[in-house]
Amino acid sequence: MLELSSNRHNPGIDPALHAWGWEIPVYLFLGGMVAGLLVLGGFHILKGRNDPHAEAYPWAPMLGVVLLSAGMGTLFLDLSHKLYVWRLYLTFQPTSPMSWGAWILLLVYPALLLAALLHPPETVPFGDAVLARAKVWSRWLRMRPRLVQAIGAANLLGGVSLGIYTGILLGSLGARPLWNSAILGPLFLFSGLSTAAAALHLLSMLSKRQVKGQFGDALLGGFFKLLDPKAGGEAMLRADTSFLTIELGIMALWLLGLLTATSVHREAAALLLSGDYAPAFWALVIITGILTPLFIQTAELSGKIRHTAAPAVLVIIGGFALRWILVSAGQTSHW
């Protein structure tokens, strides 16, 4: 029996670490989804001329910009010394994933904006003059295939970096045994990809039912076209199924890694597998977020059941739960 007591009582530290509240999981979730959108978008651009649906891809990068901004907003909200945030961009700290992330986030913006510029929408509810100018630039860009390829590559690379970084951010913190694995990088990337595919999928489902008005029509109609089961939609469904399968595999490897490491790592894994966080982990992440959508999507693809929005919603719930639970449980885990 070891009996430990301490008179330390620092807020946010004791009795268990609580440095990060809701902001960081939300940021990691949004960042992951943006990473997925970047990868998917970049992939489409690279496929370029050969893809008959590439023209129908105007809003994904714009959605990415919105989500990225929201994510950076929550990240900023989390900072406790906000006035000094500019300090991030006076330096580059090669050992700090946070520093890498700050720069990646900054570089991802132009990539997303350029991708958006490649396919400007036909109409917008306001700012027609800007749109007109954008269309001029867009034409200019599209006349330069190598530049288009470069933008595609930048989106793909940016997406992969962003996705991996959101995982490494936690994985590099050796003080928290639950997080302490580089495999969190690919895990978060594939989770991001699955949530991005699900988001696109979901929007396409919604667009079929209740799209009203010109702007909404343009927004969701584009996705509908992209995700039409007869065209790119089925591809997206297949992609999502692959992402989820890979995510599940990586998750298994990660937990296996923890279970075969030191006792503190085993205790950390136990937090998820059998401890305080187990109900949420099993119910939300594994069953709701991965197994059920996999099952439904497989059935859908084989034509056994009708196409619904359910798997997409579940994947998004699962992707968010993964980050929420990991951030919370990871802070509880300790040496």
Binding site: L17, S96, M98, L173
Partner: peptide
């Protein structure tokens, strides 16, 4: 260095001893 700290709390989470804390002033 207080004037360089943005309050991201990565260092707080990185310390296996939980020796750091967020000063109410933010750093």
């Amino acid at each position: 260095e207080h004037d360089k700290c943005i309050g991201c709390k990565a260092c707080i989470a990185a310390c296996p001893y939980d020796a750091r804390f967020g000063n109410p002033e933010g750093y």
